[in-house]
Simulated scan of single mutants.
Amino acid sequence: MTTQTNSTSCCTPAGTCGTGGQADVQGGVTTVYKVTGMTCGHCEGAISQEVSAIPGVTSVKAVAATGLVTVTSTGALDDEAVRAAVDEAGYELAGRA
């Protein structure tokens, strides 16, 4: 038996999932960045806290194991603002993933 699922997915092209899929459906922008120097949960939290403070950011998911930071925002982000936030947290933005 085949089960049909809802065609709206909460998964991003980067392969991350969340229950906040509505933001993406309503026009949110998801951008994935590569950050160097993350090694643990504390690193993830520090980066998430700083990047979350950027106006328009609605969610941040940092993963130390991959070095990826997925940012969802209400519009396009200024990469230099993201770079400054990551720098403030004590890490280095390598660029978009």
Rank of each mutant, 00 (worst) to 15 (best):
S48C: 07
T66W: 15
S9M: 04
E92H: 09
T5F: 15
A85Y: 03
V25A: 02
A76M: 10
T19C: 07
V82Y: 05
D78V: 02
T72L: 07
G41I: 07
V69E: 07
R96I: 06
Y91G: 03
A85G: 09
L77G: 02
L68R: 15
T12E: 01
I47Y: 05
C11M: 14
C11T: 12
A46Q: 15
T58G: 15
M1R: 14
N6V: 09
A76E: 12
V29E: 01
A81H: 08
A84K: 12
S52C: 07
T70P: 06
G67P: 08
D87C: 01
T12P: 02
E80G: 06
P13Y: 06
T8F: 13
V60N: 07
C40T: 02
T72A: 06
A14Y: 09
K61A: 11
G18W: 10
A62R: 12
D24N: 06
G27Y: 01
A89Y: 02
E92T: 11
M38Y: 09
T66I: 09
L77Q: 02
A97Y: 05
G75M: 14
G90R: 00
A89H: 04
C40H: 06
K61Y: 11
T70L: 13
Q26T: 03
D24H: 01
Q26S: 06
G67R: 02
Q26H: 11
S59A: 15
T19E: 10
S7T: 12
A84T: 05
T72S: 09
Q4Y: 10
I47N: 07
L77Y: 00
